[in-house]
Design a protein around this nucleic acid. Structure first.
Lengths: 143, 143
DNA sequence: CTAGGTGCAAAAGGTTTGCGGTTAA
DNA sequence: TTAACCGCAAACCTTTTGCACCTAG
């Protein structure tokens, strides 16, 4: 509880130092993300957010999630081709996507080989490593 | 050239052993994928395929790409939130997504740390590891 | 005060589906 | 022969956008 309070104080600062305003909607959307660490989609966040803030709109949820991601307090998870999922875990970690139930689990270790570093009971079928950055051509042009 | 011929012979077998038919459309879509290894989206494949096969439809391109992926001769690349990209490189490899030009490059080594294993000139900003498989709950239920 | 945010509704991608006709096996 | 596939068009789902009003800084 005090951890959440602390995080919200932190949130205000993170938003404003990144050029975003600290609004009740953004605070609440962040709270929703922290409550259940199950990597909800934007629509799931919308549904949960409406329970406390019934007038919030889908567009605002997208706006808030975007502000949270750009402020460095949440991540977009690109683990499957469905709707984007969001994750407030900013530690270095991997994601495990179950092909059956479609749930997404945080995996703490840098499990760089399938089957290695996974908690008991998880069975890896394939893995995908995506590196984001700047390619040589674009790095050259920026000069 | 003879490598392409061999691959197409291979393709027929791969499709049929996976319960798919070997059709001219599928052969052509696969050829398009092999011609330029630039990770095209379904729409880019559609545009290129139409140059030789003008009557092919978008739905057929999606159908063909899906059959190729399910037959194990191509992969869906989940590197960004834009349109799905396709890749006929079935070796174990990573993808590098340039945040500026949006191009996707194959990276051969298991570059499990940013900046390590990348060819000269590539600058990694962040990376994402997605593991796909079966979670303990679903593995239990299948028994 | 005012730039930025909110809610609504409509539009814009990207992908899937239903259907009548066609074709690979 | 016939289940699978094709092409077309319409539907679907997720995300973005335009606009009038509102509010945090």
């Amino acid at each position: 509880m005090s951890r959440v309070q602390k995080k919200n104080g932190h949130l205000s600062e993170r938003l404003t130092t990144n050029g975003f305003r600290f609004t009740p909607q953004r605070e609440h959307v962040y709270k929703v993300l922290l409550e259940e660490r199950d990597h909800p989609t934007a629509e799931e966040v919308f549904i949960r957010a409406k329970r406390v803030m019934p007038d919030i709109s889908m567009a605002t949820v997208y706006n808030c999630l975007d502000a949270l991601v750009r402020s460095g307090v949440a991540r977009q998870v690109t683990v499957d081709r469905g709707a984007t999922r969001f994750c407030p875990n900013m530690r270095e970690h991997c994601h495990f996507h179950c092909d059956t139930c479609e749930n997404v689990f945080d995996i703490d270790l840098p499990a760089d080989e399938p089957g290695i570093g996974l908690p008991k009971g998880f069975k890896a079928i394939r893995f995908e490593i995506a590196i984001h950055g700047i390619c040589p051509d674009c790095a050259g042009k920026k000069k």
